[in-house]
Design a protein around this nucleic acid. Structure first.
Lengths: 206, 206
DNA sequence: GAACGCCTCGGTCTTAAGACCGAGAGAAGG
DNA sequence: CCTTCTCTCGGTCTTAAGACCGAGGCGTTC
C-alpha cells in the first residue's frame, strides 16, 4: 500500500522517475540483475523498506551494495530501534528515514541521498548515537556469545534463573554465571535492566 | 509523505474519491465542520493515522464520532501495540490497519469499513484479543491507581525499589507495597515481568 | 459518623538474585 | 603442546525482592 502510494506520488514529482519496484529483498536483487542484463540505465536510488518478507531490508542492502556499489540505498521504515538503525547504516544505507516524515522532507532526503549526503531527522540521529554508544561499550568488553544471547532472550521473556536452567538443560549455577557475564558486558545492574535492554534493542518481538 | 502517496493512489482507484485531508486530529474536526457548514457531501470514510502531532488518532476518532456519528473511521498506523489497538477500537474505529498491508488489502478493508464491517489481519486481531484478555484480568482486580502507574513506569526504566523511593519521596516500604499490588493486579511474578509488561503495552516510549 | 479506597509506613521472613571465589572439559588456533 | 575461549558447575555470602502481617491519615461518598 505504502509502496503504491509512494510510487504514484514520486512519479508526479519533477526530477524523479520510478523505474522498478519489488516486494521483498530477493526481488530487489532480481530486478537489478534484469536491468543490468538488458543494458538499461541503472537506478540512482533504492528506497528500501526495513521489514519485508523473505529477506529484510538490511540484508538486501548488504547484498545490493556488494553487487552494485554505485546505487544509493535509503532505508524507509516505521520502526525506530537503536539496533535496526545501526545495522542499516552499517549495511551501507545512506539515510534512514521514518515513514512519519512529510513529503517535502522525503524529497529533500532523497535529493541528499542522490549526492551521497545522509539526511537524518532528530529522532533517527539520536537512535544512531545511542546505538553507537552501546556498540562501543559492547566492543570494550567483547560481544555476547550465543549462549549469553539465549539467556538474555529468556530473561527478556520474564523467566527466572530456575526456569531458564530447565529450558536450556543446565544448572542454575550456570545460568547465574551467564547472567553475571551479561550484566558485566552490557554494563547493567540487574536482570530487569537486561530485559528492558533487549526490548529496546529490538531483540524481542512479541 | 504516506498521506500524499495514499491520496494520489486512492484518487486513481475507481469508486474512491479523496475530498479532504488533514495533518492532525484538530484539523480533521475543522475540515468536517467546514464541509458540514457549506452543505457539501460528508465523507463516507476517514483514514486516520494513530500517531499525529497536536491530537492523536484515538482522541480524534472519539471526537469525530461524537460530533459526526455517521462517518466510518479506519485507523491506519505502523504500530502494533496491544493497548493502542484496544483504545482505537474502543474509540469507535471500524478497522485497525497496519501500513504494511498491500494496496489490495487496504482497498478490501476500506470497502468493508464502508459497510461497517471490520476487516482485520491476523496480527491485529491477535493484538486485540490479547488486549481484551489483559483488560478483563485488570478489571477483575480493579485498574491501576495513579501512584501505581508511576511506580510501574519507574520499574520499566530499570530502577530499583530504593531509587524509586527516592524519586517519589516515599519510603522503600511503600514502594514495596505498590510493587506487590502491581504484581497482584497484573497477575505477574516479579518486577522484570512488570517491566516487560509495561513495554509491551506501549506505556514506555524511549 | 461510617465505610471505602488510596497512600503511607513498620516489622518479619523466605527466597531469588547477584558477586566473588575457584575449576574442569572441550574446541579452536597459534 | 600450549593458550584462549566458551560452557559448564560448585560453594559461600550479601543484599534486594517480595509475601504476609498490621496500621494510621486522608479524602470521598453514602
Amino acid at each position: 500500500m505504502v509502496r503504491m502510494g509512494l510510487k504514484t506520488y514520486l512519479m508526479l514529482e519533477p526530477g524523479f522517475d520510478v523505474i522498478a519496484e519489488a516486494s521483498n529483498g530477493l526481488e530487489v536483487i532480481e530486478r537489478l540483475r534484469e536491468i543490468a542484463a538488458e543494458g538499461s540505465e541503472m537506478p540512482d536510488l533504492i528506497l528500501m523498506d526495513l521489514m519485508m518478507p523473505e529477506m529484510n531490508g538490511t540484508e538486501a542492502t548488504r547484498l545490493v551494495l556488494s553487487e552494485f556499489p554505485a546505487v544509493r540505498v535509503v532505508m524507509l521504515t516505521s520502526f525506530l530501534e537503536d539496533r535496526l538503525v545501526m545495522e542499516a547504516i552499517e549495511a551501507g544505507a545512506v539515510s534512514y528515514v521514518l515513514k512519519t516524515v512529510t513529503a517535502e522532507e522525503l524529497i529533500y532526503a532523497l535529493k541528499g541521498a542522490f549526492r551521497g549526503m545522509p539526511v537524518m531527522t532528530g529522532d533517527v540521529s539520536q537512535a544512531l548515537t545511542r546505538g553507537i554508544r552501546q556498540r562501543t561499550v559492547q566492543s570494550d568488553s567483547s560481544p555476547l556469545t550465543e549462549r549469553e544471547k539465549e539467556v538474555l532472550l529468556l530473561i527478556a521473556e520474564g523467566m527466572g534463573n530456575k526456569e531458564i536452567g530447565e529450558e536450556l538443560h543446565i544448572s542454575i549455577k550456570t545460568v547465574k554465571t551467564h547472567v553475571s557475564n551479561l550484566l558485566m558486558k552490557c554494563e547493567l545492574e540487574d536482570r530487569t535492566q537486561l530485559a528492558i535492554f533487549a526490548h529496546r534493542q529490538g531483540m524481542v518481538r512479541l
